[in-house]
Design a binder for these strands. Structure first.
Lengths: 140, 140
DNA sequence: TCAACATTGACGGGGCGTCATAGTTA
DNA sequence: TTAACTATGACGCCCCGTCAATGTTG
């Protein structure tokens, strides 16, 4: 680890739990571009970069279009930078709000699907139990 | 709807919420094969077939290898049929039990990821709120 | 007969896994 | 210097979406 708070891709992969390939892919699509490179071409990620990757990782399960996620993260960066005109700021705020609403929808949907999967597992276990008893019945 | 309890693919798609293309793909891979066909070649699904599709749909979110799911569903069918020797029965029971255990693992993992995504959404909302206040601050 | 439904290809695409080959860094 | 890391292609795979051209059903 270098002292200047810059990490190369392998360290970031370990810290985030994303694969190196995935992180590279996210750069290809503009989703998360490293702040710098070494002279030799190694990608260098700041803590902010890493945090962006973590957010992406967490939202990924909601299966939102990656491009929407990119747009929103970019919008947030723009908003925080303050370099934005009143008119556009209005738009960005609405865009982010819309995204958040959609994310919450997906979250509820996922929750329902998780519950459905639990039910399916219960059913499998019951069939399994039924078979075990059947076996005992025949052997006893 | 025919009276003999057989459904064609479109009806099954509606009932299960799976797309026709997906159902067809599941047949290609042997995951869920319709019990019959019309003379003309239309797929015909029984209620059992439909139920199998529903289980698959519910387990899908757990992101288990589709082939494992297929193997287990086949194993359960075999067990229920009773046409199986003692030795093999033993094996099938263990196989299903292993699958169920794995499914539960995945379920817990998914639950954790869902919670992480909720956290991420909360964070987005907070940034959004921060920006709103900033706007009010500047305009007031 | 006609409208609605289905069939089999085939191509395409997102999100990476997985080489292969070669350069970089400590 | 050398071991460990990284770079850029490129191909492949899964899970379907989406035509296109054609046949089936009621």
């Amino acid at each position: 680890l270098r002292k200047d708070g810059l990490y190369q891709i392998g360290e970031v992969a370990e810290r985030t739990g994303l694969s190196i390939r995935t992180i590279r892919y996210y750069e290809e699509t503009g989703l998360a571009v490293p702040s710098g490179r070494t002279r030799g071409g190694f990608r260098l990620y700041t803590d902010e970069d890493t945090h962006r990757l973590e957010i992406i990782k967490h939202l990924k399960i909601l299966d939102l279009p990656l491009e929407d996620t990119k747009d929103v993260l970019d919008a947030l960066d723009l908003l925080r930078s303050g370099n934005v005109e009143h008119q556009q700021q209005e738009r960005l705020l609405k865009q982010v709000a819309g995204f958040v609403a959609e994310a919450q929808n997906r979250s509820r949907l996922l929750s329902a699907r998780l519950e459905a999967s639990r039910q399916a597992i219960v059913e499998l276990r019951q069939v399994l139990l039924g078979q075990r008893y059947a076996r005992l019945g025949r052997s006893g």
